[in-house]
């Protein structure tokens, strides 16, 4: 399945990404990289809107909970400034067209990416799941539960993770974690999403140009 792209490069597909190079001028699947939805979407099998902290509903409009059609959302997971992973979170609505979902899968999987389907909710799968854990790890560090090295080592040795939570956050940029966490805290208001102090520090220092 071919795809065409309007906009980009973007966080999901930075410059030189093979997905950009593989695009053709005209195709049944339209990928919008940080581009507003417009008339080009009409008549396509699928239009895939890149999302950040925005909801798919902001692009499609919503009213009665019966949304859905050929416009889907997606985001390629990145740990801050780390290179993008192979994960595409594909955002669907209740009545999204099965052909559109199949076409989106075919396009992304054809590019060697893995698709995980999710509904249009704040943080999708990974941000929603990871941010509270990362905040807890940062808080544990403040509270002296263990050193950073031991917190990370425990996760690598005890859980077989390729890296520990704090080394990962520091590598990708703590301010990115702050942004994702703050947006989820605004959405849910539950304490797990409140950005941990170290993330707040990183965000403030960055805002000051530090």
């Amino acid at each position: 399945m071919n795809h065409m792209i309007l906009g980009g490069p973007s966080r999901s597909f930075p410059k030189d990404d093979t997905f950009l190079a593989a695009a053709v001028p005209e195709a049944d699947v339209l990928v919008l990289l940080r581009r507003a939805l417009h008339s080009d979407a009409r008549g396509r099998v699928a239009t895939l809107v890149e999302l950040d902290q925005d909801s798919l509903g902001e692009h499609t409009g919503e009213q009665d909970g019966e949304e859905g059609g050929t416009v889907l959302g997606f985001a390629r997971w990145r740990n801050g400034d780390d290179p993008p992973s192979a994960l595409i979170e594909l955002v669907v609505q209740k009545n999204s067209a099965p052909e559109a979902i199949a076409a989106a899968r075919a396009v992304f999987e054809g590019a060697g990416l893995t698709v995980a389907l999710c509904t249009d909710q704040p943080g999708r799968i990974l941000d929603r799941l990871l941010r509270p854990k990362y905040n807890a790890a940062l808080r544990f560090l403040d509270e002296g539960l263990a050193t950073q090295a031991d917190l990370d080592l425990t996760c690598r040795l005890g859980l077989g993770y390729p890296d520990g939570p704090i080394e990962r956050l520091l590598r990708g940029g703590l301010h990115h974690h702050h942004a994702a966490s703050a947006a989820l805290f605004e959405a849910f208001g539950t304490p797990g999403y409140a950005p941990a102090r170290r993330a707040v520090v990183a965000a403030r220092r960055r805002a000051r140009g530090g």
Binding site: W77, A116, T119, R124, L126, R128, P162
Partner: peptide
């Protein structure tokens, strides 16, 4: 938000 296979695939692919 997602079904179990999608959640697990996201964690495995996104985080290794």
């Amino acid at each position: 938000v997602a079904a179990p296979p999608d959640i697990d695939a996201a964690i495995k692919t996104g985080l290794g």
